[in-house]
């Protein structure tokens, strides 16, 4: 057993929140630069130039990339030989987010009582926490500030198994086209296929934590991702939906075995401000 103290977790989460909001990951910046080089629409080029300059300015000034500093989604991969000591893990995560958002001048965007009072919780808590128990004695923490504009464009369906690849393709294209400019293209398409209703959406979101350019380890899935990306970019939606060649920077697919009667398909879109920061304790 290896001990990780909750104080360290709280401080780490606080720091990750602040950094994630202001520093665009290198893989995303690289993909945006490539998109800028290949984009043919003059208006889309102007949009991409603004997005790239924004990333530079945000990093320099440590100012949030986007005013929507998101719902704080935290992925925890907990090694089975880790013992979390010194207090409550849930409290540490919540306090880390609260301190990160208030001390970091990040926007508090979470409201309690979602269908009635919708009163702001003032410090962006509580976070959404997903845990997986994995091998080893390390604790991996990934913080993803997820914007409301792109999250609102998520879609889920359970298809007939016979719908197959064609059904999934049509659903992805329909979702991206209907979303238009709302999710802030160029987007990353998170696609979860299989599992159960709630697990498919988890897969779609978790797929967004893969770095752009890091290949899908499964050859068939990698090929499907490439096909989907080409089609999504053929829609012509373009950056901020002004029309252009680059609607998505990547399609990331995650799958899981499913029931003989089911083909669950979940789409979770990520905006170009694809913020993610991680630490391993």
């Amino acid at each position: 057993m290896r001990e990780v103290h909750v104080d360290r977790i709280r401080e780490t989460v606080k720091q990750l929140c602040r950094e994630a909001a202001c520093l665009l990951p290198d893989d995303v910046v690289g993909a945006l630069r490539t998109a800028r080089k290949t984009e043919e629409s003059p208006l889309a080029v102007k949009v991409l130039d603004q997005i790239l300059l924004n990333a530079e300015l945000a990093g320099k000034d440590m100012l949030p990339l986007c005013q929507d500093t998101g719902t704080t989604v935290i992925f925890l991969d907990i090694g089975q030989d880790v013992h979390i000591a010194g207090g409550s893990l849930a409290d540490a995560l919540r306090e880390g987010v609260g301190a990160g958002y208030t001390e970091g001048f990040l926007r508090a965007s979470i409201v309690a009582r979602p269908f009635s009072a919708r009163a702001n919780t003032k410090d962006n808590t509580p976070p959404i926490v997903h845990t997986e128990i994995v091998a080893g004695d390390r604790l991996r923490i990934q913080v993803m500030p997820k914007g409301g504009g792109c999250e609102n464009m998520s879609r889920f369906t359970i298809m007939l198994p016979s719908a197959g690849k064609q059904g999934i393709t049509d659903f992805v294209l329909q979702t991206v086209e209907e979303a238009g400019g709302n999710p802030c293209p160029p987007i990353i398409v998170g696609l979860g296929v299989g599992g159960s209703a709630e697990y498919a959406m988890y897969l779609a979101k978790r797929a967004l934590t893969r770095k752009i350019g890091e290949p899908n380890p499964d050859a068939e899935e990698a090929e499907f991702e490439a096909e989907l990306l080409e089609k999504v970019n053929a829609l012509g939606v373009g950056p901020q939906a002004v029309g252009g060649r680059c609607t998505a920077l990547a399609v990331h697919l995650k799958t899981y075995p499913t029931h003989i009667a089911s083909l669950p398909v979940a789409v979770n879109l990520q905006c170009h401000s694809a913020r993610l920061k991680e630490a391993v304790l």
Partner: peptide, 13 residues
């Protein structure tokens, strides 16, 4: 008018 979504640091200037 459209402003570029996600360019909050640039637009703030």
């Amino acid at each position: 008018f459209l402003a570029v979504g996600g360019a909050g640091a640039l637009l703030a200037r």
